[in-house]
C-alpha cells in the first residue's frame, strides 16, 4: 500500500526494475527527479524518449547505434583491417574508453554456453565470418572474457576462421596496479605462461 498517486507509483515500479535499484532506492530516485523536475526530470524524459525511438543494433557489427550503421562502422579511417570481437556492447565501450584500438568491432551478443543452451547459431558468428571476407580483414582480435565460456567461444571462433585470417587474443596476466600477493593462482599461472623478455 502506497501513499503516492498511481502515476508516480507506476514510475517507481518501473524504476525499481533497473539494475542497482530496488523499491526503496527507486522511490528516492523518483522523489529526487520530482524535486528537480525542470532541469533533470524533463530533460531525462526527453532523452529517454529520443533514445527509445532511435536506438537499434548496428546492422554490421551489433553495436548500439541510432542509425542503421554505427559511427565506428561508418568511419572510413577505422577500416584498418583489424577487427576486435567482443562479447557485448559494454565490452565495446570499455575498449573504446581505453582509446587504444583504432579498428572496427564485432559484437557477438554472448558466449557459447551449454548451460544456457547458447550455441554458435545464437551468436553473430556467421556474420563475423562474412565480414572477414567482405571487409578485407587482416587480423581478428578476440577480446573475450577470461572465463571458461569466453575462452571456449574464442577457440570456436579461431576454428571457424582458421586459414582465412590472422587470429589473436588479448593477453592474460597481472593487471596494472595488481599485487602478486592478492592474485589468484589461475591469474599467476596465466601470467607466468605469457611472460616476456625485458
Amino acid at each position: 500500500m502506497s501513499d503516492a498517486p498511481a502515476e508516480i507509483e507506476t514510475l517507481i515500479e518501473m524504476m525499481a526494475k533497473l539494475p542497482g535499484l530496488g523499491p526503496r532506492s527507486a522511490r528516492r530516485a523518483v522523489l529526487h527527479l520530482i524535486s528537480k523536475r525542470g532541469f533533470l526530470m524533463q530533460p531525462l524524459a526527453e532523452a529517454m524518449q529520443a533514445v527509445a525511438q532511435t536506438a537499434r543494433e548496428c546492422l554490421n557489427c551489433g553495436n548500439i547505434s541510432t542509425a542503421e550503421i554505427c559511427p565506428i562502422c561508418a568511419a572510413e579511417k577505422r577500416a584498418t583491417g583489424e577487427l576486435c570481437v567482443v562479447e557485448d556492447v559494454a565490452d565495446l565501450w570499455a575498449m573504446e574508453r581505453a582509446g587504444v584500438f583504432k579498428g572496427r568491432y564485432h559484437v557477438l551478443g554472448g558466449t557459447l554456453s551449454a548451460l544456457d543452451a547458447v550455441g554458435p547459431d545464437e551468436l553473430r558468428i556467421p556474420k563475423l565470418v562474412d565480414r572477414v571476407a567482405a571487409e578485407g580483414i587482416t587480423e581478428v582480435i578476440l577480446a573475450l572474457n577470461a572465463t571458461i565460456d569466453g575462452q571456449t567461444t574464442a577457440h570456436y571462433i579461431a576454428d571457424q576462421l582458421e586459414g582465412r585470417v590472422n587470429v589473436t587474443s588479448l593477453a592474460q596476466g597481472v593487471p596494472i596496479g595488481g599485487e602478486l600477493d592478492y592474485l589468484d593462482d589461475g591469474t599467476i599461472t596465466a601470467a607466468l605462461k605469457a611472460r616476456k623478455s625485458l
Binding site: 572465463t147 577457440h155 593462482d185 591469474t187 596465466a190
Partner: peptide, 15 residues
C-alpha cells in the same frame, strides 16, 4: 584449486 588457467590455452583440454 582453479583449473581454468591450466586448460584455457589448450582448446582440446578446454573442450
Amino acid at each position: 584449486k582453479s583449473r581454468a588457467a591450466a586448460v584455457m590455452g589448450d582448446r582440446l583440454a578446454l573442450s
